[in-house]
Design a protein around this nucleic acid. Structure first.
Lengths: 205, 205
DNA sequence: GGTGACAACTGAACAGTGTTCAGTAAACTG
DNA sequence: CAGTTTACTGAACACTGTTCAGTTGTCACC
């Protein structure tokens, strides 16, 4: 034998975990997190409901894993976006924020679970990688401007708040008579960025 | 008899409805909407769960009524605030938005039910009175500036988005390491307002 | 005062939900 | 082959929102 049975079993376990998660994601995006049920998940993978709990702690953990995976993708794409060197920091920041909004609209269920559902005091608090990226972008914009770290953090948080606001509203209220989603996103982000980063070379129209 | 029995009964019914709603609000604000249950409500007013359905259509309707009532209060207070004539429109707008945020933080459960929960396509869409107030404030600020109605609407929506963003984040993530809630609210609102209303007499520090 | 109509209310049930646990069956180990 | 470990299930628990047949109490009319 080249691989011992314990390792073989562990591999098999991992395989099943992923199979369950895969099915979970399918149900999750198809029916939304609100009607996602362990029983439906179990049935879709051909297990009894109890079997799910041999592989996962509880329903919340499954949500967390799905969301984490999705946000890892967002993170990668954002990272790639900000590594393009030919753009100035300011428009890179804007592009990043706009990308964030569109990503949220593309994966509304993930976004909702991540940001909209109650998040009780679990964990000391892990900041989202996307937020870290925003912070470095802000720092780039404000490099050599004499801004204190505290102030940069404040501005990053303000940027996030505004961006989150338009994202979550567009997700939650798709049928509100928005005058123009595209212009609205641009308006929110432009205002927030202008308010955070003094537009030395900004020109008001 | 001065009052006929049907009217007497109807009055009694109304009284009970209000008693139930009162108890519902108490549970609602104490335990949050997530753990609000018809059964708990029934027990707290000394009825069987089924009795609740003689007075209300379903759980959602009870939520709706509670939220509506709360927002009516917000609306009144906002209305009073904008009728103070001694302030210029711009700072009135800011004050209104700040008031909105603080109101949301004061009544987080109501705010969540109103804005955070899925709102499927029911009704053609009733805009919130608070939003209407925001619109008139924006119009006041931009009076005689040559802004088209569409543009004013866009700016109002953008203001709302940013304000909602900071409100909902502070509600959902009370334990995030916010650098300063007070400054953060101010930063978000200032940026949004500056971005929406050209600051003729605005001075950057 | 007796009787029928109607309103208010309840007990029990239905169809769900997340989660646990004793017990079984299969797989691996010595 | 016996014994241990692992994977899994059936059934149950404690909930949830909601419905409905049946019971009680109140009122109006004869």
């Amino acid at each position: 034998m080249f691989i011992d049975a314990p390792a073989r079993r562990e591999r098999r376990r991992q395989q099943i975990r992923e199979e369950i998660l895969h099915a979970a994601r399918e149900i999750f995006v198809r029916t939304g997190y609100e009607s996602f049920s362990i029983r439906a998940l179990a049935q879709s993978v051909g297990y009894s409901p109890a079997a799910i709990y041999l592989h996962f702690e509880n329903k919340q953990q499954i949500f967390d894993l799905l969301v984490e995976e999705s946000f890892a993708h967002l993170n990668n794409e954002l990272q790639a976006l900000i590594e393009k060197p030919n753009k100035n920091p300011r428009s890179q920041l804007k592009a990043g924020l706009e990308f964030y909004v569109h990503w949220g609209l593309k994966y509304p269920s993930e976004y909702q679970v991540a940001f909209v559902l109650r998040n009780p005091d679990k964990k000391p608090y892990r900041t989202h990688p996307a937020f870290d990226i925003a912070r470095t972008l802000v720092k780039r914009c404000l490099a050599g401007s004499g801004n204190a770290p505290r102030e940069m953090e404040l501005k990053t948080q303000a940027l996030w708040a505004a961006t989150h606001g338009i994202t979550s509203l567009l997700i939650q209220r798709p049928n509100f008579p928005w005058v123009s989603k595209k212009h609205l996103i641009a308006q929110v982000i432009d205002s927030a960025v202008n308010g955070a980063i003094n537009s030395k070379n900004g020109h008001r129209k």
